[in-house]
């Protein structure tokens, strides 16, 4: 049930962020909410449930995003979850600074993985390294705002009782 609430909240936030940024005169893709959600899943959820929730979130994003190959977000977010899960044992990801750093690294990796998987699986894709530069503002903004973006998910967990006591200090 915790995963279902989490996915519903992610869908809602994803739905609102784009139009909100557009309304503020900014690029609608400036914030990568699914990336922050994956970071949160990586340190706040049990391993197996977190991984499966990440995959379902990836599938929803694949369907939501026109032009993306089915499975692309699933694969990328799944790999990032495993990475973040591994780091969560060594870094206190419920603290702002480590969260910012990990989101930054995960954002760069996500961009590179999208590029690589597009090269491998999209028959019509012609890779141009210059297009990677396009993702820099998104990665930087998302990383800097990650401690704020994670609050709705932590808040939901606190409301539904899913968050462990030790994790409540993020709020």
């Amino acid at each position: 049930m915790r995963s279902v609430w989490f996915l519903l909240l992610l869908a809602l936030v994803q739905l609102l962020v784009g139009p909100l940024l557009l309304w503020m005169g900014l690029r609608p893709t400036l914030l990568d909410v699914p990336l922050v959600a994956t970071c949160y899943l990586g340190y706040a959820f049990p391993t197996r449930r977190g991984f499966l929730t990440t995959l379902v979130a990836g599938l929803i994003l694949d369907l939501w995003t026109p032009g993306t190959l089915l499975g692309m977000h699933m694969e990328v977010l799944g790999l990032l979850f495993l990475l973040i899960r591994g780091l969560s044992g060594r870094l206190p990801l419920d603290r702002p600074l480590p969260l910012i750093l990990v989101t930054l690294v995960a954002g760069v990796l996500k961009t590179l993985l999208f590029y690589l998987l597009s090269l491998l699986f999209d028959s019509g894709f012609e890779g141009r390294a210059a297009s990677l530069v396009w993702a820099i503002p998104t990665v930087l903004t998302t990383a800097l705002l990650a401690p704020l973006l994670v609050l709705p998910f932590a808040g939901l967990d606190a409301l539904t009782g899913g968050l462990r006591k030790a994790d409540r200090r993020i709020l």
Binding site: R48, M74, E75, G78, F121, D122
Partner: peptide
């Protein structure tokens, strides 16, 4: 169980991408 979950979770998307990237037009599930 965890190893099986991880392998399945990473291989299934690859298969989906392979099928979606290779196919032209729209399959029924798509």
């Amino acid at each position: 169980r965890w190893a099986v979950t991880v392998i399945a979770g990473l291989v299934i998307p690859v298969i989906l991408m392979f099928l979606a990237g290779r196919g032209s037009g729209s399959s029924l599930p798509e």
